[in-house]
Design a binder for these strands. Structure first.
Lengths: 338, 338
DNA sequence: GCCTGGCACTCTGCCCGTGTGAGTGCCAGG
DNA sequence: CCTGGCACTCACACGGGCAGAGTGCCAGGC
């Protein structure tokens, strides 16, 4: 096991490297941190840390830089989450409070997060899976053409057009609308299939086909929209990546455009608490030189979606984690209020 | 005025520079193009072109590169629009035909354009200003809470919640719905305000307040949504920009994130025909080293929105213009069909 | 009058050798 | 187990020299 001091050395290396972007040597460490021992001792510790795979040297006789494994240890055991200052917190709240609708909330969140962390921000739209139905509306655009509108408690609205085989009377429509709402309003999306299963049976023979069609479109909407939308921002921060640009940045930009990849990434994050994926821990190969800090957010106790940032593995983890957590918390509040 | 041959020299310089990304000299020119004169002659021509401001040398005793003014002349007088090959055209059509809804059309278009031009693609959602109303729906979510749904001929759906001061009866609602539709269906958005102006007067005193509210929300929706949404893609192509990355690419990424800027940019493009803005012709300072090729597209004869690409001033203008024009044409077709 | 070949000049980019500084590993002594 | 000392290894910056590309100018030919 690593001694207390060696962990301290690792922490110092991570902190210095994150600050300077340059490999850090034993002498510089003793100068900038009160470790109470000489450079020679540090050298031994560093050699040990290197043997264990926590740090590495880019080339002989250069300083050391942390490896993914080193960052992992740092995040897990050596660093806390740095809380934001209260002016920062106020600024977040003020900025988010100005939002007028869901799109605006999400848009503001992504900009805020990008600015705060100076990294690329990713915000997933509130998911339908966990959320509940506020209202279902059915209306006839034409005798055999219906429109289904679904309103969720997160303020999202989805609509679908439905072509039915047979005309559907106004009374039947009102009937279906009423029954549908009485069964599903306030319920979770996941529970809806169960709740409407036997609806067609209670209708006239002639209408059953249409009722079934409507229900299947409704269920389809739930499933389809569980594939979430997301918004990204702050890509300009990628320019702060490192010195060897084109090669580093290109795969990241490509990965960011594949929303499927990002959604999968966010999906892998734990629902509660914060998830930090470092370098090669990310499955996608374009992101092996980045770290992803993600957290769930939601209007109640439960997460309805995730948000996070993508940045170089060499990032300020405590600060980033603090910002991500704070933003998630405030967004959750905003959603709960609306 | 410039002689025919000098224009030919300029064309050759632009073509070579776009291909090689390196300043082009007199000797190389005579080798790669059949100009029928010696390098020395070319040198004189180049000196003249430089005096006129069409080309410049990065430093003494290097080759010449085109200036913005040089590209402008090239685009206006020396280069045509290069039509796509028929396999390319077929590929476009197949790819776009697979789209299932408006979002999908736009999403596919942006990816297609990015891939075809190997640049950053920008696609504006079909605008509401020019388009017409397909249907307006009004429904009561609660006694004093209405929902307004607007369906456009471009397949777009917008919805708004309305809180009314007084309850609004079902018959009044049906009445309003019917009258509203009979007046505005098939009409252009721009004409709607005129058409509904006198509607409140034909209602009972009690209902007039609510009717006015509904109308104002409807009009508001039109205005608000004229501020268009847009989608961008292919940002990874920015890595092909040049050698001096960070500085060049950062302001571009920043500009791309400011959708307002891009919308303004597209808005400045001519409605019909293609608009090419080169380098400093772009008002936004982050985009002074880029060129923007934009064109309107639409379901009928008229443009309902714009699309285009953003790339380095050193781009293949004929090819890019060909791709942009072709994509716009096919998207227009798809929209007209649906 | 215009094109051409020749010539001198000016840069940039590259290679190479050198020197410096940072950093390391190892070892012997406290 | 810590420490100071020492030899060693690189990366990097600096400067000179050299080649190559490109230019401008000029005198001669068609």
């Amino acid at each position: 096991m690593l001694s207390e001091r060696r962990l301290e050395v690792l922490r110092a290396i991570v902190q210095d490297y994150v600050g300077t972007e340059e490999p850090v040597g034993s002498k510089a460490l003793t100068e900038r941190h009160q470790l109470g021992v000489s450079p020679a001792t540090i050298r031994n510790d560093m050699a040990a840390l290197e043997d264990e795979g926590f740090i590495a040297q880019p080339h002989t006789s250069a300083g050391r830089i942390p490896t993914d494994k080193g960052y992992r240890l740092f995040v897990d055991r050596l660093a806390g989450v740095k809380p934001l200052s209260s002016p920062e917190r106020r600024a977040i709240q003020n900025f988010l409070d100005g939002a007028v609708d869901l799109d605006d909330v999400v848009g503001r969140t992504v900009r805020l997060l990008a600015q705060l962390t100076r990294q690329v921000a990713v915000v997933q739209y509130p998911s339908l899976t966990r959320s509940t139905v506020r209202h279902v509306e059915l209306l006839a655009l034409a005798p055999a053409r219906l429109m289904l509108v679904l309103i969720t408690d997160t303020g999202r609205v989805e609509q679908r057009l439905i072509d039915c085989q047979a005309p559907f009377g106004e009374t039947s429509l009102a009937d279906l609308r009423a029954r549908l709402n009485s069964r599903v309003v306030g319920r979770r999306f996941a529970d809806v299939p169960q709740l409407v299963q036997d609806l067609p049976e209670s209708f006239e023979q002639d209408d059953r086909g249409t009722v079934s069609t409507v229900l299947s479109v409704l269920l389809e909407t739930l499933v389809e929209e569980t594939e979430e939308r997301l918004v990204i921002g702050g890509t300009a921060n990628l320019t702060r990546f490192g010195h060897d640009f084109p090669l580093t940045i290109r795969p990241v930009l490509e990965a960011l455009e594949e929303h499927v990849v990002l959604l999968k990434l966010l999906g892998e994050a734990k629902d509660s608490g914060m998830t930090v994926r470092i370098g090669h821990e990310n499955a996608h190969e374009g992101l092996t030189s980045t770290s992803v800090v993600a957290v769930g957010y939601g209007s109640g106790d439960e997460a309805v979606a995730k948000l996070g940032v993508v940045g170089p593995t060499r990032m300020d983890y405590p600060g980033t984690m603090g910002a991500v957590r704070a933003v998630a918390r405030y967004v959750g509040q905003i959603l709960a209020e609306s």
